[in-house]
Amino acid sequence: MADPLLKVSGLEVHFPIRSPFLRQRVGTVRAVDGVDLEVGRGETLALVGESGCGKTTTGKAILRLIDPTGGSIRFGGEEIAQHGPSRLAPFRRRMQIVFQDPYASLNPRMTVGGILAAPYEIHRIGTTADRHARVAELLRTVGLPPEAARRYPHEFSGGQRQRIGIARALALEPELIIGDEPVSALDVSIQAQVINLMKRLQAERGLAYIMISHNLAVVSHVADRVAVMYLGRVVETAPRETLFFDARHPYTQALLSAVPEPVPGRRRARQVLQGDVPSPAKPPKGCHFHPRCPIAQPRCAEEVPLPRVVAPGHAVACHLAAP
């Protein structure tokens, strides 16, 4: 990508494991262990992987809600991985997040109006009257009545709360929104509504999204490109069509075979993975996937496979991936 909005390279987030007694460090959880990502303006990148593979941690590190222990995050061309709070402030307006849990993500003691006015208060934007007007406008944008401003979050359904969370993320007119499984906690009937809202907003405002999901089927509706994560690393990145029809990484292939007909017209032999996902506190040497990989070679247990471009926009981190 020539001039991506966001370029993440070699991102690492290692959490210390401390002993309960003397609190000394006894190990490391490699939640994110060298992630490379790019997101273009107005584009949707889906970040997909099983539970615990580090998707949320990656998202939070990009937003600098968790401090990365290594790697680079370039947003709009500027390196922000090491920025302190004051230098981060302008970037807070440019990237936002929508959380998975519509209950925990809204302060139960604040009215919806208070929640939506907070971004303007924090950045000292507008007078009180301006803020009221902006809050009403935000509510209208996400399909809620202006009276909602006076109510508390518990008075709303999950889907409505998620709309409020989206409205909050929109308040500062960001260029990038990270959606951390924004619909997975909602009823299936509501999921499509919220996804459609997010797609409409993207079309209207030229937003870029990183959509985090453990569900490849959801991704097939929204993503332009897909990045597949396994145990703290991105194993394959490709445009959506390419990923569904021409996945090269054995892990991606296994994931796809578990999805019942994600894209019509394509049949796959069902391929069941052996064993469990190893713990990120003790990741396997070499390729993280090698203990479960059906085609693993001896070198896979020794050498870390680096992402290789096999076709334009299609990168695979596997020793055996043919160009």
Binding site: K60, L63, L65, P85, L88, A89, R92, R93, M95, Q96, I97, F99, Q100, D101, A104, S105, L106, N107, P108, A118, P119, I122, H123, G165, R168, A171, L172
Partner: peptide, 12 residues
């Protein structure tokens, strides 16, 4: 809780 993360993401 996530509402605190949301506030931090807004720069509070």
């Amino acid at each position: 809780q996530d509402f605190v993360a949301a506030a931090r993401a807004l720069g509070a």
